[in-house]
Design a protein around this nucleic acid. Structure first.
Length: 274
DNA sequence: TACCAGGGCCTTT
DNA sequence: AAAGGCCATGGT
């Protein structure tokens, strides 16, 4: 295990790992980020057009992290396309190095069930407790995200310590359906989008928003456009006719920029809310 | 169809 | 100190 470097323009780790698409990354005092994904602990930094990964090797990088950090997508082209639209141009300019993370499907589904009607700091705490209590311990410390099979065997009382409130039974229903194969997450990643949505929404506690989050962040289905309260405000205010159709194939990535921008501009929330 | 609970933390008043 | 609101959903 050593350090891998990858040349990439404009990878903004603070935005990408802190914006609330993943809940398992923690910023260190030196500006690096430490987190766990795929049951592996990793530290990442970015400096001078380089993306640096500590605690991995070339083979693992190729197999896992290249995809996880979405390093192969041409974000330059995406940003140019988005910049044809005035609102998106501002959002892209605000955080050009923001990227989509391509997480494991179960982790994404479970995390976004926990995220509903909730705020990011609290979601992080709940996910952290969930992993500590039920995730496989790792050799170098920390815990993997617990499997659906493990959680499926639990009862609501077992989840009380994670303090997820009413969401606990939703997580359990999801875990049970995934463990039983009623919900097939790898199939969700390749089947027609509306079928995948419908399958996920069989889960009690999964509506359109959470289903789209699972598909976008967990399956890399970038045409999904999860509509949370922030995005709804943005759309109501700037896209009353909906997001321009030309962006439909990558609406999820547009959403990512818009969400991040909206959350950081108080103006928007107030202007739009009134 | 239109509320409203549910749990807890952070932010604003 | 108190109230409002949160990357929603299900139930009434």
């Amino acid at each position: 295990m050593g350090t891998i470097t990858f040349r990439v323009q404009d990878y903004d780790l603070d935005a990408t790992l802190g914006c609330g698409q993943s809940f398992r990354w923690l910023r260190q005092h030196d500006g690096s980020w430490q987190g766990i994904a795929y049951g592996r602990k990793l530290r990442v930094r970015s400096a001078g057009g380089l993306f640096l990964l500590d605690g991995t090797n070339e083979e693992e990088f190729r197999a896992l992290w290249l995809r996880y950090f979405d390093l192969e997508r041409d974000y330059g082209a995406l940003r140019r396309a988005f910049s044809q639209d005035e609102t998106l141009r501002s959002a892209v300019a605000f955080a050009p190095g923001l990227r989509l993370l391509r997480q494991e499907p179960w982790e994404a589904l479970c995390s976004f069930i926990l995220s509903q009607n909730n705020n990011i700091p609290r979601i992080r705490g709940i996910v952290e407790r969930l992993c500590t209590l039920f995730g496989e311990p790792l050799e170098d410390g920390g815990h993997a995200f617990p499997t659906a099979q493990r959680l499926a065997a639990l009862g609501e009382d077992d989840l009380a310590p994670i303090r997820s409130g009413f969401r606990a039974r939703y997580v359990l229903d999801a875990a049970r359906r995934v463990a039983l194969g009623e919900v097939d997450l790898s199939a969700a990643c390749s089947m027609p989008l509306n079928d995948a949505r419908a399958m996920l929404m069989q889960i009690c506690g999964v509506g359109p928003k959470v289903a789209d989050c699972a598909l976008l962040y967990g399956c890399g289905r970038v045409e999904c456009f999860p509509a949370d309260v922030w995005i709804k405000r943005v759309v109501a205010s700037f896209y009353p006719q909906g997001l321009p159709g030309q962006f439909a194939p990558v609406a999820g990535i547009a959403q990512q920029y818009l969400f991040h921008y909206a959350r950081h501009l108080e103006d928007w929330g107030q202007k739009v809310g009134s």
